[in-house]
Design a protein around this nucleic acid. Structure first.
Lengths: 335, 335
DNA sequence: TTGAAAGCGCTAACAG
DNA sequence: CTGTTAGCGCTTTCAA
């Protein structure tokens, strides 16, 4: 590999100073056209590639943001990523995509790496731990925008979905339809989206004045495996006439389980799931689902981050902005 | 935001030189334990965050690689990404995930940005254009590993799948089963995976000594929409007794189209698709598919890149390594 | 309109 | 074992 060309080499070739080369590269207007041409020529001739690392060190800005999701495998994150990527691109930013796998240790490693790399902002779906570290990063001057899940004590931007409300409406819909044995595969209810969706479930029963059967709720952890297990549990607990699942991964597990036992939808049970991956309409019957505005979640989070980044330090202490988006119930054929 | 703490501040606090601080941070063995403790103390006290940008500038290595895929939306890329991320993490690297959308203009922008940011390597699914630029980057000293698609004239590592062979075997299987009107939704055949899968298709007929019907192949461009269109075309061209689709996106389109017209699998037609997203087993019947070792593609590409990165410049000129992985036919119920 | 020079924060000889 | 110092490649006053 040949010695890399730098701004000094260009300056020498063009017979100007490095300051002038820098000006040309950065489209400064205060360069005589003639001089500019000389520099441009030297630039082409050598196909010089500016060193962004040096530049970033100097201007103290990396033109990079970080994105930490809790699981790269979920379709759910694909469109969020795309939203973020699109907004970043339009701002001439690159993004570090990281995946914590919902593991606080990995999350910590990535948060640390990202702040050492001096990203200009971080979009994060938090595991719920590392709160102190996140606060440190914030006070270090790096804006953070939470999405999907949120952490109450954290004083930062966030974009979430009205989980509780959407869940409540969905359950009410089922109740209105006459379903009574609603089997619910819930996420963990200690906090976060799992809790909110659960709360909505409970609320709907309360609103309707119908007693809720505790045996009809099974608590999973949002993984495919737990979807299978919970379905089995509900089945052996007397079954249900509709199955309501709190996220996509568990829904896949549930669907597999039902299929293995030849329990048909909608003949033997209704079905409703959170998240609406593109394959829901490929199944027969087409699956009803609670659809989150995934692409918008991504673009919104990115917009919030760029608002902070572009406004500079003066904006850092501004109050957090909290955006709540609507998830909506899409009725197809499974219910 | 408070003034950032740097290595100099730590040195002052600990009453040592910046060189010593640097040594402690980098776990150099030649520091007296007592001194190390003093520095460590100052480090904790301030929660200092090393500036990786400055470090990278100095050591001329960014501990970052770039990944450019041609479409973030495909399930196909999810596991590839995961493979890359896993390997990168184990090497303490971060990765810029970029998405060209198969657009040469975006690809060019990203390639340029990545080389300016001095990534230590790039994993790329090429659009096929920008060959000159890719060569420049290579000769600039940044290793590149192509995956999925390859470009013959490029002298660099690549990991691909035996598209032609797998396609040929799959078609032979169908022929052996007695299918004769095999409708084929092909990708573009000018080059790349599209061409290879098409070639395999042709070959199988030739091997079997069975004449191939040109009206039974429709040429799409790997998008969902083209999957729909091609299916319609084949249907109006007299139909087929099995439908063979060259990638996932087009398969989704085809499936939607068949479903809309109430053409059932396998009652009315057989079905075989390239790629094996996790939902294939959720459908009834379970879909037969040609499965690519996606996770392995990711880890292999990343391993190749890290081999070059870690061996340093001396390795740069070594001959390209070309890995070909097997895609395998998985027979389920649709065929 | 241009150039000289001072760093950005860090690492790595080199000298002690 | 520790400190001094010279850069890495770039931007940005400040002067000319």
């Amino acid at each position: 590999m040949s010695k890399k060309i730098n701004i000094f080499d260009i300056a020498t070739r063009a017979g100007v100073s490095i300051a002038t080369v820098s000006r040309v590269i950065n489209d400064s207007p205060l360069v005589k056209e003639e001089t500019r041409q000389k520099v441009l020529f030297a630039l082409k001739e050598t196909n010089y590639t500016p060193n962004a690392i040096a530049k970033n060190l100097r201007i103290e800005r990396s033109h990079t943001i970080g994105f930490i999701s809790t699981g790269i495998l979920m379709c759910f994150y694909n469109l969020i990523s795309k939203g973020i990527e699109d907004i970043a691109r339009s701002n001439k930013y690159n993004v570090f995509f990281c995946n914590s796998d919902d593991d606080p240790v990995k999350e910590k490693q990535y948060l640390t790496a990202l702040s050492e790399k001096r990203v200009d902002g971080i979009i994060l779906s938090p595991t719920g731990k590392n709160v102190k570290l996140i606060e440190d990063i914030l006070s270090f001057g790096i804006p953070i925008c939470l999405f999907d899940r949120s952490i109450d004590e954290l004083h930062c931007d966030r974009v979430t979905v009205n989980n509780r409300d959407a869940s409540c409406k969905a359950v009410r819909y089922m109740l209105d339809k006459g379903y009574r044995r609603i089997g619910f595969i819930s996420g963990p209810v200690s906090r976060g989206t799992g809790k909110e969706r659960y709360d909505g479930f409970v609320q709907a029963f309360r609103d309707a004045g119908i007693p809720m059967t505790e045996e009809l709720v099974a608590y999973g952890n949002f993984t495919l495996e737990s979807g299978v297990k919970c379905t089995e549990k509900l089945l052996s607990a007397g079954g249900f006439d509709v199955l309501y699942v709190a996220n996509e991964r568990m829904a896949v597990g549930a669907l597999q389980c039902l299929s293995d036992r030849d329990i048909r939808i909608p003949r033997d049970t209704g079905f409703l799931m959170w998240d609406d991956p593109y394959w829901t309409t490929l199944l027969k019957p087409k699956l009803s689902a609670i659809s989150q505005p995934v692409y918008t979640i991504g673009t919104t989070a990115a917009d919030l981050i760029f608002k902070r980044i572009l406004k500079g330090d003066s904006y850092i202490d501004k109050d957090p902005i909290r955006v709540t988006l609507d998830a909506k119930l899409i009725i197809r054929e499974s219910l």
